[in-house]
């Protein structure tokens, strides 16, 4: 598998505050990598850097051999964001899907749309959808993107257990088709189902690199807690976080 996403020595500061420190990351085509961490760990900032919305203060990020902004402009990115549907209340999911695709009829038959079960509400206004239904539509938009790079920020948020299962199917489907997928999440169990590796991000640093395949749920939670506790006990990091 060829490496599609590569980050080395990434640092990011907002004003005087250090948000990310010395991050190194690779994601290959066909690979699913998870980033787990508590609130405020820097996951969403890392996402913005990988999308080229923000330039890192130091270090290097390359996607497909170029910088994230150029990659996004040239190839697009399948991006699932946390922000909800504010602003799109008057649109229908089908109208939003025209941003990526020309064939309206094919949307109903698309494997991703079928797996996520959005057919019944493709033509309803976003304002009338439940949070879970809108999330499934957003996931369809991100995962139907023709891009080779998908970045999913909290993909399980708002999904019921059945929909989470369908989400895992879709992620596996896109990975099998060669996409490099990075998921940012609090949900360790969900990450363990889909990701080959989980990087534990706490206070802007990777504290642990976990292979979830051989770990039970309780062992996974223990590794997570140990990583978070170790970071919180580090006086240097506490001072920086303050």
């Amino acid at each position: 598998m060829d490496t599609l996403v590569e980050a080395r020595g990434v640092e990011h500061m907002i004003g005087e505050r250090r948000i990310l420190t010395g991050l190194a990351l690779t994601v290959a085509g066909g690979e699913v990598v998870g980033i787990a961490g508590p609130n405020g760990a820097g996951k969403s900032t890392l996402g913005r850097l990988l999308l080229g919305f923000v330039t890192p203060t130091a270090g290097m990020i390359a996607i497909g051999g170029t910088d994230p902004y150029t990659f996004r402009r040239m190839h697009g990115v399948g991006f699932l964001h946390e922000d909800g549907g504010r602003g799109w209340e008057q649109a229908t999911p089908r109208a939003l899907l025209t941003l990526h695709h020309d064939d309206l009829d094919a949307i109903d038959q698309d494997p991703v749309a079928r797996t996520l079960g959005i057919g019944p509400y493709l033509d309803r206004r976003v304002a009338t959808l439940s949070k879970g239904q809108w999330r499934a539509c957003q996931l369809t938009m991100a995962c139907r993107s023709p891009s080779r790079f998908l970045l999913l920020d909290e993909p399980e948020a708002g999904l019921d257990p059945g929909a989470q299962g369908r989400l895992h199917e879709v992620i596996a489907m896109r990975a099998a088709a060669g996409a490099a997928i990075l998921t940012l999440s609090h949900h360790l169990e969900s990450l363990a189902v889909v990701a080959a590796r989980i990087h534990l991000l706490v206070q802007g640093r990777f504290r642990d690199h976990i292979d979830p395949r051989d770990l039970s749920s309780s062992a996974l939670r223990l590794r997570y807690s140990q990583g978070v506790d170790a970071a919180n006990a580090d006086p240097t990091d506490r001072a920086r976080a303050d």
Partner: peptide, 19 residues
């Protein structure tokens, strides 16, 4: 102002050729 809303911007900006 509508174009710059985070949810609107991030949706349209993920397309190829956005800029």
């Amino acid at each position: 102002s509508h174009w710059r809303r985070p949810s609107v911007w991030t949706t349209v900006a993920q397309r190829r050729g956005a800029g």
